[in-house]
Structures are given as structure tokens and as C-alpha cells.
Nucleic acid binder design. Structure first.
Lengths: 112, 112
DNA sequence: TTGATACTTCACCATATGGCAAAGTGTTGC
DNA sequence: GCAACACTTTGCCATATGGTGAAGTATCAA
């Protein structure tokens, strides 16, 4: 297979491809700074399993870990998701209506 | 590992995690209907290798294949990418500026 | 200082992934 | 028909992935 060094965006999409990892990202959005064991608790997953997922998320730059005493707080780092969106945006024209319609939508949104 | 049936969005992100597959999607955007061997040609990749990538893309619903005689034309099917973007959009607030700035940008864009 | 807590690392396992060569299938052209 | 073409399938291989239990490390609390 000869795995060349995977690029940043490879690592990002690959990290996002797992439901456990996506759920971790969702939780961190609402509750930043959760610890490793708090993140693992809702899953039928031992700590080493969660560690591996967190390693994948770190390698992709999607989270940062900071040690406070013996607990580690994990927080989100959304930059790579932005790049993933930029990549996807190239295809947006294949499903969206015109830019005029987008402006109208934004304006509707503002009126509320 | 006990691989539960991967969900649609799992398959989408997973399909996007490979540079060969992303390049295939880019080519198909500009040149819809390319054949399997035309897609394989630019890579140092034999046909069976490209077949596997196309299978992954099909399973994710990102391409469709239609047989014309002995050649197969492949075309893009962007729906799943839209869903991937919707997922990512939840995090957009973590990196974007205000909606006012977005409106300004859209308007700037229109003036050109 | 000692024991519990909160990770972290290690060794191991089963399955998935991504590649190949070779053989098989269906079309086309002579 | 039959040869060439365009896939497609099969069998194989090496490595990656996602999980475990067990052992190791660092910190806190008594």
C-alpha cells in the first residue's frame, strides 16, 4: 500500500469519517474542555479506545489537549473543518440555486 | 472491530479522505462522463485499483456509472457532498465573522 | 507514604483498505 | 468466428484501523 504521508485534508476527512469522532466533536462544541474520561463515558468504549480516536482528531488538528493536573481537557479547533468546507464548496454550484436566491435567503433570515 | 453498517455520511467522509478519489471527483466536475480507463490513465494505478476507488465512490453515492457498449461513463452525483457540508456548517460559527459581513461579501461579489 | 484517580503506553487481535496480477465477461470490428 | 478492447472479478498481499486487557506514569488526598 506504501502509505505516503497523508495530507492535512486527507487526515481531516478521514477523522470525520467515524461516528464516534463526529460525536466527540459535537459534544465539544457544546461543552468545551471536557476530559478524556467524560468523553469516553457515553460510549461502550474503554479509555485506550477513546485515546486512539483523540489521537486521530489531534493529528487532524481538530482538537487540542491541555493537561491540568491529572485530568486533560479537550477542546475544539475548527480550522481544518473550514478547509474541508472550502473543498466541498467547489461543488456547491451543482446543488444550489443562484446567488440571487442566496442573497434573498440571507435577507429573509435577517428580517426575523 | 465489529463493523456495524457504516452510515451514509460515514461513507461520504471516508470516500473523500483519499486524494485519488478527490481528484477523480474534480476531474468529473469538469469532464462529466469520463470512462473508467480515462480516469485511471493519469495515475500510476492499474484498472482494478481504480475500480476499487470507484466502488467506494459509488457506495457513498458520489458517482453513478452507466454502461455504453463496452465502455462505462462515470458522472458526479453531488448530493452526499451537500450533506457533508451541512454537517460542517454547524461549526461555521466558530470561524466566520457575522452574517452582516457575509451579506457585504455577497454584495461585493455581485458588483463585479 | 500510600492508595486511588486519570490518563498513557504497550502488546495483541480481527477486520478493512488499497494495491497487484491473472483470469473472466461482454462488445466491437474485421 | 475471432481478436482486440474495456471493463470486472478473483485471489492474494502488506499495512492501517479500531478495539481490548494489562502494565506504567503522574497527580491528588488523606
Amino acid at each position: 500500500m506504501v502509505k505516503y504521508q497523508a495530507s492535512a485534508i486527507d487526515r481531516t476527512f478521514s477523522a470525520l469519517a467515524d461516528p464516534t469522532r463526529r460525536y466527540v466533536l459535537l459534544r465539544l462544541k457544546d461543552e468545551p474542555g471536557l476530559s478524556v474520561s467524560e468523553l469516553a463515558r457515553p460510549f461502550s468504549l474503554k479509555l485506550p479506545g477513546m485515546m486512539k480516536h483523540l489521537d486521530v482528531l489531534s493529528d487532524a488538528g481538530l482538537i487540542t489537549r491541555t493537561k491540568n493536573g491529572r485530568t486533560v481537557s479537550v477542546s475544539l479547533s475548527a480550522g481544518p473543518m473550514r478547509e474541508a468546507m472550502e473543498w466541498l464548496r467547489r461543488y456547491e454550484s451543482l446543488w444550489t440555486v443562484s446567488i440571487d436566491r442566496l442573497v434573498a435567503l440571507v435577507e429573509e433570515d435577517e428580517e426575523q
